[in-house]
Design a binder for these strands. Structure first.
Lengths: 197, 197, 197, 197
DNA sequence: AATGAATGAGGATTCATTCAT
DNA sequence: GATGAATGAATCCTCATTCAT
């Protein structure tokens, strides 16, 4: 009679190095969802659980809770940068992509509020400032002479304002409010969609 | 089993019932400061400490953490209402007072983001929605025909946008950014000052 | 904001998952002792301390204080059921085992007082009622025709009465009083001993 | 225009020494109710509130929580003593009065469990032992030769057993169970009623 | 490389008790 | 003599983080 391990005995699969990347992606995705549902202060354990991994894995990939938030934001910023770098890019189009991230990602909202003094986990703030700069750089490149938001500072201020407009409402409301906000600012915005979407 | 204070020693002064009102005011003031420094999730113990009272006093005056936040917001809203009710009030003047509160009170920032779904302590949200309505009512009364923000909804959206503009920066920066934000919106705003100030 | 362990120092041993079962058992045993010494309302922290584990471990194994008490009672009831299920079981023998548990386990005393309305932590009561039923079922099976406690209700009432007789006295006294109580009831009881003991 | 204090300004009536006795009685009555509803560990503040007096008054009359419980028990015992001292008293009658107190007073239940080691506020236990002795003395005087519970110890054991029988059930159930318990013990009990009732 | 148990500090909340008025 | 606010210790409970396996 051969013996085979029962389900209870079988150790969780260790898929080797391949799994590492997969786990990291799952964690970032889970974090994005959890942040959307429970805010940036949500327990890390919930993120690990939703990602389907142990707590240890989270710590293997991210040294602390700030690193998790940064990873989520990093993704958003990178997409905006890619949109800005595209051959056919123009300001309206990039703002459309940016607006999409504002409406889809609760964590991204407030990114542009980088100098904030309180309430955010340490480390998030520091990195956020750098990310905010990257967004500013991406937009600045497409700012044409004579644009209503002539100064780069005005442009980022406007982004912060739109961000304020979508803070709070449920996801469904956000796009409507974002577009209304841009309209109040007299700025033309391209279709609200992810880069390449 | 139950408690045994262990402290048969001295006991800090008990200023009697007279102190009640004073303590409540001290708590609200302390909360305002703590919120500004550490955000709405700051430990209640810190608020009590800064107010110079025991933890129990805080709970005597406010049943839960939402009640503390509500008390702080209530003060802000009341001032805006008073400004709106003044005989000589006009929209620009009321917005000036409103803007002052946005720049001075971190807790007030985001009040107009009432429908937010996550991350805020329960109960804050519910009351915030009502407070937001009171602000809307106060402003609406002074909205003149043909104003750039003709619809009341646009007006509150604009307030939320300015709120976004001042979220994050240190206090010194806020007034400058708030005024810049109103300028981008093409809205005239009176002097930024407290009601009666 | 959140936690900062402050303790970059040493850290007690973590015996790994193997310890889980051991810890749970240690907690139940510790709870039994603590209940005996300080009653059902004793602080959970004391139970964790006596079990030699951190507070968190207690909460990992038992969601709330009711669950701890239930786990302790569960053990008592299971032993009675096993005694009743034994091939050679008869009423006197089962009552002997039951009596042993009454005299040894302060938490078990009062289990049969299930409908109590006040003073017990919520949840204990609910489960206690079910446990009481299991005891009743175990005894009923051995109730012979013409027994002095002919009705099953009378039998459980008698158990409650004996329980009352042993409530309070120190452990040494309990067995004596329990036997005296059964004698007053005119019921024959086998040797007072644990099942299999 | 004469002035009269508004309701807000009027200080609570100070009815002088007369009120003292009234307050004490109100506190004991309130304690009895609160104990029945929430158990012996109920907050003292609730007792004061239900008595309609400030917390300070409670502490004026009773030095600590044990004193409150003792005062409640004292009343019960005194009634039993009075029943025992009555000219026409006999054992059945006194047991009827005793039983009434068992069924009516949650605090009285368990009094006869005097040697209990844990869970009760310190000081209750000590006094309870003395009270228990007074009950024993009251009953002993009416124990006739040849009674089923010939020894005084048996008599008090029986009382403890009946006490166990009524611990837990809702008030409505208690009298029924108490009578059933006495029946199982083969003891005749007079009408269950307060002394003089 | 993953798991998930354990630790333990921190923050919330509740009362017993004191005391100025 | 009464009131009820204040104090603050104790307990509950929740996570961030570590680490044996």
């Amino acid at each position: 009679m051969t013996q085979h391990p029962t389900a209870e005995e079988r150790r969780p699969a260790n898929d080797g190095p391949k799994a590492a990347a997969r786990n990291r992606a799952a964690l970032v995705a889970a974090a994005r969802e959890v942040y959307a549902e429970h805010g940036l202060d949500a327990p890390l354990s919930g993120i690990a659980r939703r990602a389907g991994v142990g707590q240890g894995v989270l710590y293997r990939h991210f040294p602390d809770r700030a690193a998790v938030a940064n990873a989520v934001l990093e993704e958003n910023v990178r997409e905006v940068e890619q949109a800005a770098a595209a051959a056919t890019a123009n300001l309206a189009g990039v703002l459309g992509v940016l607006t999409w991230h504002l409406t889809e990602s609760a964590a991204f909202i407030g990114l542009l509020h980088a100098d904030r003094t309180g309430g955010r986990p340490d480390g998030v703030h520091a990195h956020a400032s750098a990310l905010s700069d990257r967004v500013a750089r991406s937009l600045r490149g497409h700012l044409t002479d004579g644009h209503r938001l002539g100064a780069s500072d005005d442009l980022m201020l406007a982004v912060a304002m739109v961000s304020g407009a979508v803070t709070g409402p449920t996801r469904g409301e956000r796009e409507r409010r974002a577009l209304a906000a841009w309209r109040l600012l007299g700025v033309e915005v391209g279709p609200v969609r992810p880069f390449g979407g």
